[in-house]
């Protein structure tokens, strides 16, 4: 319940201009100069902040200097402090998938071992290499490959509300919108059956935070003497991780299912200590 409240709170923090969903306008004030911690589309009518991946990609595809110190530094600091705790508690796209996963459908609790490495390829190829290297001959600008072809956040939180409320934008939507809608519907369908499929396989922001999970300040600690080795924690994990051995696994989003499942209170949220 606490996590749900935190997710609702962070959703509203990312998207405080909720009235824009009805007016079809996009907030364009000064806060857009700052990044949000989670994956939340820049073009979402209610969004107050920039999407860190969209912003990072925008520098790589631009004609000026290609590495943003501001966005890169922000992601490094967030990663070092929280790691994938952001995914579990603060990300609006993750929150949406958690809500979808609550639907009464058959659940496939699979580990996705090799598939989970694909998000690093998405980060390298679709956010960095392609936007940087494939450029328009006339303008010199690259193309935002991740935002255009993969990111479901733009479709769900941006395009669909604008489609409903803004006649001008509705008239401009074309083939790319159809592709994005197909991708978003595919990912929503996957989210019904597999917990956080997008976060685990495709999300470049998750890939960045995953690299910091082993050193992040906030983490889940395992108290060995208190542990009864009952395996309730691993049974509760939707990602099929073993929290006793893998509490800092790159895919662990610190959702806390294992913490709640542990009757001995051997797993706890905490900071760096002897147990990890």
């Amino acid at each position: 319940m606490k996590r749900l409240l935190a997710q609702i709170g962070f959703f509203v923090l990312h998207n405080p201009y909720l009235q824009n969903f009805f007016s079809g306008r996009i907030y364009d004030g000064k806060l857009k100069g700052f990044c949000a911690p989670g994956l939340n589309c820049y073009s979402c009518p209610a969004a107050a902040f920039s999407c860190p991946i969209g912003s990072l990609q925008n520098f790589f595809r631009g004609t000026g200097h290609n590495i943003s110190l501001f966005v890169t530094g922000f992601l490094i600091a967030m990663g070092a402090a929280f790691g994938r705790f952001v995914c579990g508690f603060a990300c609006p796209m993750g929150f949406l998938q958690d809500l979808i996963y609550k639907a009464p459908t058959p659940k496939f609790r699979v580990r996705l071992r090799k598939l989970s490495y694909f998000k690093y390829i998405v980060l390298a190829a679709f956010v960095i290499i392609l936007p940087f290297s494939v450029r328009d001959y006339l303008s010199g600008l690259g193309y935002p490959w991740f935002c255009a072809y993969i990111c479901p956040s733009g479709t769900i939180f941006g395009a669909w509300p604008l489609l409903a409320a803004n006649d001008f934008i509705r008239g401009m939507l074309g083939a790319l919108f159809n592709i994005k809608t197909a991708v978003a519907i595919g990912l929503i369908t996957m989210a019904l059956f597999i917990n956080r499929f997008f976060c685990r396989v495709l999300c470049p922001l998750g890939a960045i935070y995953a690299m910091f999970n082993k050193i992040s300040f906030v983490r889940i600690n395992h108290d060995k003497p208190a542990c009864a080795n009952c395996a309730k924690c691993s049974e509760s994990c939707n990602l099929r991780l073993d929290p006793v051995k893998e509490s800092s696994h790159p895919d662990c989003m610190r959702c806390g299912n294992c913490v709640r499942a542990c009757g001995e209170k051997a797993l706890k949220y905490g900071t760096i200590n002897k147990s990890n």
Partner: peptide, 16 residues
């Protein structure tokens, strides 16, 4: 972190 597309504060490709 602002993204501008054709002068406007929007990412057009993000919304298709």
């Amino acid at each position: 972190a602002v993204i501008r597309d054709k002068g406007a504060v929007i990412c057009l490709e993000c919304i298709g």
